[in-house]
Simulated scan of single mutants.
Amino acid sequence: MSTDREIRNVVLVHGAFADGSGWRGVHDILTARGYTVTIVQNPLTSLADDVAATTRILDRQDGPTILVGHSWGGTVITEAGVHPKVAGLVYVSALAPDSGETTGQQYEGFAPTPEFVIDVGDDGYGFLDPGKFKAGFAHDASDEDAAFLRDSQVPINMSVFDSPVTHTAWRDKPTWAVIATEDKSFDQAMLQHMAKRSAATITTVSASHALFMTQAGVVADVIDEAAKGAAR
């Protein structure tokens, strides 16, 4: 999708084990550049619930919008991104299933990362292991920032990884991807595979999975590039 209107709206979607507060740096950079930025707070209870939360925010935009997802948020924007106001997509070390695929299927054939450990409770919700949180999620963050992320993490209903995507926004809309080369949550080959399959314009950066926070400048620059590119 391209538009002859300037794109000044950005919607940011967080992933599993996190909330929208990690986007603060990206938000501040983009708002200083004149963008209107809105952050979705996903409940992480089901794919349908997270897509509904994102759609609710997209409905409030006053024009074409760049939709951005980190990690699990990539699955959410893949489904929600078919919204008519979405002009382009940005995947930030994010999952990008195709129609009929589940998020869990994206891991098939790729090596697991031992630093990334999920503790699943009897109710089916998962937290990241506190003792391995920094190593697996945010090793390039300060001890204080990593501790805050660890202590404020939002559990995810693990059944979401078995929910198939029914729409694939990246099939029809221009796509960009930012990949953290030191990501311990996803295999590098897996991230590259998904980004290339979606025909994304790829930017790599030396960072952890928490690049949405630790590399806010790089992520904001790619979103800015996407807004300009999708408007052509």
Rank of each mutant, 00 (worst) to 15 (best):
R8L: 06
V26H: 08
R33D: 09
S208H: 06
G63F: 08
Y107R: 01
I118A: 13
D183Q: 04
Q41D: 10
E108R: 14
D143N: 09
L30P: 02
P174H: 13
L149W: 07
A96H: 10
K228V: 07
S163Y: 12
L191F: 04
G100E: 01
R33P: 05
G124K: 12
T203D: 01
I29G: 11
E79Q: 13
I66V: 10
G20I: 02
V218S: 12
D140H: 02
V26M: 08
A200C: 04
A94D: 02
L47P: 02
F148Y: 00
K196C: 02
V10D: 01
Q188I: 02
L44H: 09
V219S: 12
G109A: 13
Q215H: 15
E182I: 04
P84Q: 02
R24T: 01
G100I: 00
V165E: 06
I223K: 05
A52R: 12
I7W: 12
K85H: 10
V13L: 08
A53G: 15
I223T: 03
G217L: 11
D145R: 14
V86E: 05
A200I: 00
M213E: 03
G217K: 12
Y107S: 05
V13H: 11
A216Y: 14
V154H: 10
K132N: 13
G88F: 09
T175A: 15
N9K: 06
D59G: 05
W23H: 05
Y35S: 03
V86F: 12
R171H: 14
E144I: 11
M1S: 15
A80R: 08
Q105E: 11
W23V: 02
E6M: 13
A18D: 06
V86C: 11
S99N: 05
D183G: 09
A226G: 04
S163K: 11
W176F: 07
G20C: 08
G124M: 08
K196L: 10
Y35P: 01
K173L: 07
D140A: 03
T54W: 11
F186H: 10
A207F: 07
R150N: 00
